[in-house]
Simulated scan of single mutants.
Amino acid sequence: MTIVPTGSPGRPPTPSDRGAGPLLRAWREQRRVSQLELALRAGSSARHISFVETGRSRPSEEMVLRLAEHLEVPVRERNALLLAAGYAPHYPETPLDDPSMDALREGVERLIEGYEPYPALVMNAMYDVMAANRGITMLLDGVPGSLLVPPLNAMRLTLHPEGLAPRIRNLRAWRGHLLEQMERQIALRRSAPLRALYEEVAAYPLPSGTTDDEPGEGPGAEARAYFALPMRIEHEGRVLSFISSVSTFNTPMDVTVAELAIETFLPADPATVKYLHALMF
Protein backbone atom coordinates (compact mmCIF):
# COMPACT_ATOMS: atom_id res chain seq x y z
CA MET A 1 0.00 0.00 0.00
CA THR A 2 3.06 2.28 -0.07
CA ILE A 3 2.70 5.29 -2.34
CA VAL A 4 4.95 4.86 -5.36
CA PRO A 5 6.39 8.05 -6.90
CA THR A 6 6.27 8.26 -10.69
CA GLY A 7 7.41 10.71 -13.31
CA SER A 8 5.63 13.90 -14.22
CA PRO A 9 2.35 13.04 -16.01
CA GLY A 10 1.76 16.29 -17.86
CA ARG A 11 3.54 18.50 -20.34
CA PRO A 12 6.64 20.30 -19.02
CA PRO A 13 5.90 24.00 -18.61
CA THR A 14 7.77 25.76 -21.40
CA PRO A 15 7.73 29.47 -22.25
CA SER A 16 6.06 30.67 -25.42
CA ASP A 17 7.91 32.92 -27.87
CA ARG A 18 4.68 34.83 -28.32
CA GLY A 19 4.08 35.40 -24.61
CA ALA A 20 1.16 34.37 -22.48
CA GLY A 21 -1.49 36.06 -24.62
CA PRO A 22 -2.16 33.24 -27.12
CA LEU A 23 -2.21 30.69 -24.30
CA LEU A 24 -4.72 32.72 -22.29
CA ARG A 25 -6.88 33.19 -25.38
CA ALA A 26 -6.82 29.44 -26.05
CA TRP A 27 -7.92 28.69 -22.48
CA ARG A 28 -10.64 31.36 -22.66
CA GLU A 29 -12.00 29.98 -25.92
CA GLN A 30 -11.87 26.43 -24.61
CA ARG A 31 -13.91 27.50 -21.58
CA ARG A 32 -16.30 29.36 -23.92
CA VAL A 33 -15.96 32.63 -22.03
CA SER A 34 -16.08 36.01 -23.77
CA GLN A 35 -13.47 38.68 -23.14
CA LEU A 36 -16.12 40.79 -21.44
CA GLU A 37 -17.24 37.98 -19.15
CA LEU A 38 -13.66 37.17 -18.19
CA ALA A 39 -12.95 40.85 -17.54
CA LEU A 40 -15.97 41.12 -15.23
CA ARG A 41 -14.90 38.02 -13.32
CA ALA A 42 -11.31 39.22 -12.94
CA GLY A 43 -12.08 42.85 -12.14
CA SER A 44 -10.50 44.11 -15.36
CA SER A 45 -11.76 45.46 -18.70
CA ALA A 46 -12.47 43.74 -22.00
CA ARG A 47 -10.02 46.19 -23.62
CA HIS A 48 -7.21 45.09 -21.29
CA ILE A 49 -7.99 41.40 -21.83
CA SER A 50 -7.85 42.00 -25.59
CA PHE A 51 -4.50 43.79 -25.27
CA VAL A 52 -3.10 40.92 -23.18
CA GLU A 53 -4.25 38.28 -25.64
CA THR A 54 -2.79 40.11 -28.65
CA GLY A 55 0.49 40.87 -26.91
CA ARG A 56 -0.01 44.63 -26.84
CA SER A 57 0.04 44.57 -23.03
CA ARG A 58 2.11 42.41 -20.71
CA PRO A 59 -0.01 41.14 -17.80
CA SER A 60 1.33 41.34 -14.27
CA GLU A 61 2.08 38.12 -12.42
CA GLU A 62 -0.99 38.73 -10.27
CA MET A 63 -3.17 39.19 -13.36
CA VAL A 64 -1.92 35.95 -14.95
CA LEU A 65 -2.80 34.03 -11.80
CA ARG A 66 -6.15 35.77 -11.48
CA LEU A 67 -7.14 35.03 -15.07
CA ALA A 68 -5.95 31.43 -14.74
CA GLU A 69 -8.06 31.02 -11.60
CA HIS A 70 -11.21 32.32 -13.29
CA LEU A 71 -10.55 30.13 -16.34
CA GLU A 72 -10.04 27.07 -14.12
CA VAL A 73 -6.63 26.42 -15.66
CA PRO A 74 -4.96 23.36 -14.07
CA VAL A 75 -2.12 24.17 -11.69
CA ARG A 76 0.57 22.70 -13.94
CA GLU A 77 -0.58 24.88 -16.83
CA ARG A 78 -0.65 27.99 -14.62
CA ASN A 79 3.10 27.59 -14.27
CA ALA A 80 3.34 27.38 -18.06
CA LEU A 81 1.37 30.63 -18.38
CA LEU A 82 3.67 32.36 -15.90
CA LEU A 83 6.78 31.20 -17.77
CA ALA A 84 5.30 32.40 -21.05
CA ALA A 85 4.66 35.80 -19.46
CA GLY A 86 8.27 35.99 -18.24
CA TYR A 87 7.72 35.07 -14.59
CA ALA A 88 8.95 32.23 -12.43
CA PRO A 89 6.63 29.28 -11.77
CA HIS A 90 4.39 29.89 -8.77
CA TYR A 91 3.54 26.30 -7.85
CA PRO A 92 6.22 23.76 -6.85
CA GLU A 93 6.11 20.15 -8.02
CA THR A 94 7.30 18.14 -5.04
CA PRO A 95 8.04 14.41 -5.44
CA LEU A 96 5.82 12.23 -3.27
CA ASP A 97 8.86 10.66 -1.60
CA ASP A 98 10.11 14.06 -0.44
CA PRO A 99 10.16 14.37 3.39
CA SER A 100 7.89 17.41 3.15
CA MET A 101 5.19 15.09 1.79
CA ASP A 102 5.30 12.69 4.75
CA ALA A 103 2.06 13.98 6.27
CA LEU A 104 0.25 13.75 2.94
CA ARG A 105 1.46 10.22 2.21
CA GLU A 106 0.67 8.93 5.67
CA GLY A 107 -2.75 10.59 5.72
CA VAL A 108 -3.75 9.21 2.33
CA GLU A 109 -2.53 5.73 3.19
CA ARG A 110 -4.49 5.76 6.45
CA LEU A 111 -7.55 6.94 4.56
CA ILE A 112 -7.61 4.14 2.01
CA GLU A 113 -6.61 1.54 4.61
CA GLY A 114 -9.51 2.66 6.79
CA TYR A 115 -11.85 2.14 3.83
CA GLU A 116 -11.17 -1.60 3.83
CA PRO A 117 -12.66 -4.08 3.09
CA TYR A 118 -13.97 -1.90 0.26
CA PRO A 119 -11.57 -1.07 -2.61
CA ALA A 120 -9.78 2.29 -2.74
CA LEU A 121 -6.76 3.62 -4.61
CA VAL A 122 -4.79 6.81 -5.26
CA MET A 123 -3.96 7.90 -8.83
CA ASN A 124 -2.11 10.71 -10.53
CA ALA A 125 -3.24 12.64 -13.62
CA MET A 126 -2.13 9.78 -15.89
CA TYR A 127 -4.17 7.24 -13.89
CA ASP A 128 -0.98 5.65 -12.56
CA VAL A 129 -1.75 3.93 -9.25
CA MET A 130 0.25 5.52 -6.45
CA ALA A 131 -1.27 3.48 -3.63
CA ALA A 132 -4.01 0.87 -3.21
CA ASN A 133 -5.61 -1.05 -0.34
CA ARG A 134 -6.41 -4.74 0.10
CA GLY A 135 -9.79 -4.33 -1.56
CA ILE A 136 -8.07 -3.40 -4.81
CA THR A 137 -5.54 -6.21 -4.41
CA MET A 138 -8.44 -8.65 -4.10
CA LEU A 139 -9.96 -7.46 -7.38
CA LEU A 140 -6.60 -7.90 -9.15
CA ASP A 141 -6.46 -11.64 -8.39
CA GLY A 142 -5.64 -13.45 -11.63
CA VAL A 143 -4.36 -10.41 -13.56
CA PRO A 144 -1.14 -11.43 -15.38
CA GLY A 145 2.15 -10.13 -14.03
CA SER A 146 2.87 -8.20 -17.24
CA LEU A 147 0.09 -5.75 -16.31
CA LEU A 148 1.22 -5.49 -12.69
CA VAL A 149 4.68 -4.08 -13.38
CA PRO A 150 5.00 -0.63 -11.72
CA PRO A 151 3.79 1.92 -12.39
CA LEU A 152 0.39 0.23 -12.47
CA ASN A 153 -2.09 2.08 -14.62
CA ALA A 154 -5.74 1.94 -13.61
CA MET A 155 -7.07 2.34 -17.16
CA ARG A 156 -4.82 -0.37 -18.59
CA LEU A 157 -5.62 -2.74 -15.71
CA THR A 158 -9.35 -2.21 -16.19
CA LEU A 159 -9.72 -2.17 -19.98
CA HIS A 160 -6.95 -4.48 -21.20
CA PRO A 161 -8.41 -7.76 -22.57
CA GLU A 162 -6.09 -9.66 -20.23
CA GLY A 163 -6.83 -7.41 -17.25
CA LEU A 164 -10.12 -6.93 -15.44
CA ALA A 165 -12.14 -6.47 -18.65
CA PRO A 166 -13.14 -10.15 -19.13
CA ARG A 167 -14.58 -10.22 -15.59
CA ILE A 168 -16.60 -7.00 -15.80
CA ARG A 169 -20.16 -8.07 -16.53
CA ASN A 170 -21.27 -4.68 -17.85
CA LEU A 171 -18.02 -3.94 -19.68
CA ARG A 172 -19.51 -1.94 -22.56
CA ALA A 173 -21.26 0.48 -20.21
CA TRP A 174 -18.31 0.71 -17.78
CA ARG A 175 -15.80 1.12 -20.60
CA GLY A 176 -17.91 3.93 -22.05
CA HIS A 177 -17.97 5.65 -18.65
CA LEU A 178 -14.17 5.44 -18.29
CA LEU A 179 -13.47 6.71 -21.81
CA GLU A 180 -15.85 9.65 -21.30
CA GLN A 181 -14.06 10.43 -18.03
CA MET A 182 -10.71 10.47 -19.85
CA GLU A 183 -12.14 12.71 -22.58
CA ARG A 184 -13.21 15.24 -19.94
CA GLN A 185 -9.75 15.19 -18.39
CA ILE A 186 -8.10 15.67 -21.80
CA ALA A 187 -10.33 18.69 -22.45
CA LEU A 188 -9.43 20.10 -19.03
CA ARG A 189 -5.68 19.46 -19.07
CA ARG A 190 -4.81 19.38 -22.79
CA SER A 191 -2.19 16.73 -22.01
CA ALA A 192 -0.52 14.94 -24.93
CA PRO A 193 0.53 11.93 -22.75
CA LEU A 194 -3.05 11.57 -21.50
CA ARG A 195 -4.34 11.71 -25.09
CA ALA A 196 -1.86 8.95 -26.04
CA LEU A 197 -3.08 6.80 -23.14
CA TYR A 198 -6.69 7.37 -24.20
CA GLU A 199 -5.95 6.30 -27.77
CA GLU A 200 -4.16 3.19 -26.49
CA VAL A 201 -6.92 1.94 -24.17
CA ALA A 202 -9.74 2.95 -26.53
CA ALA A 203 -8.15 0.69 -29.16
CA TYR A 204 -8.12 -2.38 -26.91
CA PRO A 205 -10.38 -5.07 -28.41
CA LEU A 206 -13.31 -6.21 -26.34
CA PRO A 207 -12.80 -9.70 -24.88
CA SER A 208 -14.39 -12.47 -26.90
CA GLY A 209 -18.06 -13.00 -26.08
CA THR A 210 -18.52 -9.63 -24.35
CA THR A 211 -22.22 -8.97 -23.73
CA ASP A 212 -23.44 -6.56 -21.09
CA ASP A 213 -25.81 -8.27 -18.68
CA GLU A 214 -28.49 -6.63 -16.59
CA PRO A 215 -28.52 -6.34 -12.77
CA GLY A 216 -29.80 -9.61 -11.43
CA GLU A 217 -28.08 -11.83 -13.99
CA GLY A 218 -25.20 -14.13 -13.15
CA PRO A 219 -24.23 -16.12 -10.06
CA GLY A 220 -24.62 -14.30 -6.77
CA ALA A 221 -26.26 -11.22 -8.32
CA GLU A 222 -29.36 -9.52 -6.99
CA ALA A 223 -32.14 -7.88 -8.99
CA ARG A 224 -32.23 -4.24 -7.92
CA ALA A 225 -32.27 -0.68 -9.24
CA TYR A 226 -28.95 1.13 -8.83
CA PHE A 227 -28.68 4.85 -8.03
CA ALA A 228 -25.59 5.24 -10.27
CA LEU A 229 -23.85 3.15 -12.91
CA PRO A 230 -22.13 0.29 -11.06
CA MET A 231 -19.08 -1.70 -12.03
CA ARG A 232 -20.28 -5.28 -11.89
CA ILE A 233 -17.30 -7.62 -11.67
CA GLU A 234 -16.92 -11.35 -11.11
CA HIS A 235 -14.80 -12.63 -8.26
CA GLU A 236 -14.57 -16.34 -7.45
CA GLY A 237 -17.96 -17.15 -8.94
CA ARG A 238 -19.79 -14.15 -7.50
CA VAL A 239 -20.83 -10.88 -9.12
CA LEU A 240 -19.82 -7.88 -6.99
CA SER A 241 -21.28 -4.43 -7.63
CA PHE A 242 -19.51 -1.14 -6.87
CA ILE A 243 -20.30 2.55 -7.32
CA SER A 244 -17.19 4.65 -7.96
CA SER A 245 -16.44 8.03 -6.37
CA VAL A 246 -13.39 10.22 -7.08
CA SER A 247 -12.07 12.86 -4.64
CA THR A 248 -9.41 15.52 -5.18
CA PHE A 249 -7.76 18.11 -2.93
CA ASN A 250 -9.29 21.56 -2.55
CA THR A 251 -7.14 24.63 -3.40
CA PRO A 252 -3.90 22.68 -4.04
CA MET A 253 -0.69 24.70 -3.86
CA ASP A 254 1.56 22.04 -5.40
CA VAL A 255 1.38 20.46 -8.87
CA THR A 256 1.79 16.95 -7.48
CA VAL A 257 -1.04 17.39 -4.99
CA ALA A 258 -3.28 19.02 -7.62
CA GLU A 259 -3.00 15.93 -9.81
CA LEU A 260 -3.73 13.32 -7.14
CA ALA A 261 -7.16 11.67 -7.02
CA ILE A 262 -8.57 9.17 -4.54
CA GLU A 263 -11.04 6.69 -6.03
CA THR A 264 -13.23 4.70 -3.68
CA PHE A 265 -15.62 1.90 -4.59
CA LEU A 266 -18.81 1.81 -2.56
CA PRO A 267 -20.64 -1.53 -2.47
CA ALA A 268 -23.86 -1.12 -4.43
CA ASP A 269 -25.83 -3.96 -2.84
CA PRO A 270 -26.02 -5.88 0.46
CA ALA A 271 -24.61 -9.06 -1.09
CA THR A 272 -21.35 -7.28 -1.99
CA VAL A 273 -21.07 -5.83 1.53
CA LYS A 274 -21.58 -9.24 3.11
CA TYR A 275 -19.12 -10.97 0.82
CA LEU A 276 -16.30 -8.47 1.33
CA HIS A 277 -16.65 -8.48 5.11
CA ALA A 278 -16.62 -12.29 5.15
CA LEU A 279 -13.60 -12.39 2.84
CA MET A 280 -11.38 -9.97 4.74
CA PHE A 281 -12.43 -10.21 8.38
Rank of each mutant, 00 (worst) to 15 (best):
M1K: 08
T2A: 14
T2L: 13
I3S: 08
T6D: 00
T6L: 01
P9V: 05
G10L: 12
G10Q: 04
R11K: 08
D17G: 09
G21I: 01
G21Q: 05
P22I: 04
L23C: 03
L24C: 01
A26V: 00
R28I: 02
E29F: 00
Q30C: 04
Q35G: 15
A39D: 03
R41V: 01
G43W: 08
S45M: 04
E53Q: 06
E53N: 06
G55E: 08
R56E: 10
S57G: 02
E62M: 05
V64D: 03
A68F: 01
V73P: 00
N79H: 11
Y87D: 00
P89F: 08
Y91D: 05
P92Q: 11
D97G: 10
M101F: 03
E106K: 15
I112Y: 07
Y115C: 06
E116D: 14
P117E: 10
A120M: 13
L121G: 01
V122S: 05
V122A: 15
A125Q: 13
M126A: 15
T137K: 15
L139F: 11
G142F: 07
R156D: 00
P161H: 10
E162V: 01
L164M: 15
R167S: 13
R169S: 07
R169H: 06
R169V: 07
R172W: 04
W174M: 11
L179D: 01
L179E: 01
E180G: 11
M182F: 03
I186H: 09
A187S: 12
R189M: 09
R190C: 06
L194K: 10
E199T: 05
E200C: 06
Y204I: 02
T210F: 10
T210H: 11
T210V: 13
D212M: 11
E214C: 08
G216T: 04
G216H: 10
R224M: 14
M231K: 13
M231N: 09
I233S: 03
E234A: 14
H235T: 03
G237A: 03
G237F: 04
S241G: 10
V246H: 06
S247A: 14
T248H: 13
F249E: 09
D254E: 10
V255H: 01
V255I: 11
T256F: 02
A261W: 09
I262N: 02
T264Q: 12
T264N: 05
F265Q: 12
L266G: 04
T272W: 12
Y275Q: 06
H277P: 00
A278H: 14
